[in-house]
Design a protein around this nucleic acid. Structure first.
Lengths: 158, 158
DNA sequence: TAATTCTTGACTAAATTACTGGGGAAATGA
DNA sequence: TCATTTCCCCAGTAATTTAGTCAAGAATTA
């Protein structure tokens, strides 16, 4: 799970789509203009999103993109995965023998951490983000929530 | 908050330091060999870690690096921030006028999401990672924990 | 048919990552 | 003092990724 500006572009565009989708379709040119992103670059990202079934494109006048399924069914992790191509990143290709015993031990550590992040992002849907935005106060709620949730982690429960 | 392989190198090295630190110092060459990373590259990362006070280097024979403070006091987010130089990433430099009204609205969305990830990573200390690794079963515990915690998010509480 | 919009592919510039190499400076031990 | 070990700092560079351009074409609507 990587978290780059590329993924951010994709998430932004998808949230835009979720935010402005009142049943109709939205042209890429619109999204590109709204966020001042190169349209051709967005096209590349949407090609990947399309291949993953996250969006649905229709051509011709009045055409555009739609969410491939309900916003509640699309997680932020889905979007990031679609454009990021997860480049293996393990350096030893999953084999547990990169260097001595301990080499891949720390691999495991990283992957465990990384999978926690993934699970977290998988739990946040586009709808959640939209709702959170509309609510306004939500970030504080989340902040509180995280605080209560996170303390057992550092207090030696594990 | 970006999450690249660069940050992963740094976290791996720091966890190695936390794992093998029995009071003494550890030479960079050791860490480099253990994880098969270019030593000079690690030197660059450690220069950044040093500037942030996360590690403490001593020269001469028997020298090496030490954690700058207790492993419980160093979060994964600290490590990533130290090497990542957080390149602004807002594209409009904080100003709320990049394009019309809605441009920076979605900015807010992203930044809120990004800050949630940051808070999550801030809650995980090196000690936590080490403990989790030693426990072995911990990842499953975490998985369960996340599941109970995450459901209110998607069930319309917000 | 003409306009619109997605779709695809090739190509390029800029930035970042990962790495190399060299020349020190401080500490230690002989 | 001198050699060795280690951090420390800087300059450069190849590979990769990001971000963007350009052009041709397919499907749809009016």
């Amino acid at each position: 799970m990587r978290l780059t500006t590329k993924g951010r572009y994709a998430v932004t565009a998808m949230v835009d789509l979720a935010l402005n989708s009142t049943g109709g379709r939205i042209a890429l040119a619109e999204i590109a203009a709204r966020h001042d992103i190169s349209q051709s670059y967005l096209e590349q990202l949407f090609a990947a999103l399309r291949r993953s079934g996250l969006v649905d494109g229709t051509r011709g006048p009045g055409g555009g993109y739609q969410l491939g399924r309900a916003g509640a069914e699309i997680s932020v992790a889905d979007v990031i995965d679609a454009v990021d191509e997860s480049v293996d990143a393990t350096r030893c290709g999953g084999k547990r023998n990169c260097r001595g015993d301990q080499g891949c031990l720390t691999h495991d550590l990283w992957e465990s951490l990384s999978s926690q992040i993934r699970q977290f992002l998988s739990s946040v849907s586009l709808e959640t983000v939209v709702k959170q935005h509309r609510a306004g106060t939500a970030p504080q709620v989340l902040h509180k929530w995280l605080k209560t949730v996170v303390s057992p982690l550092n207090s030696g429960v594990l």
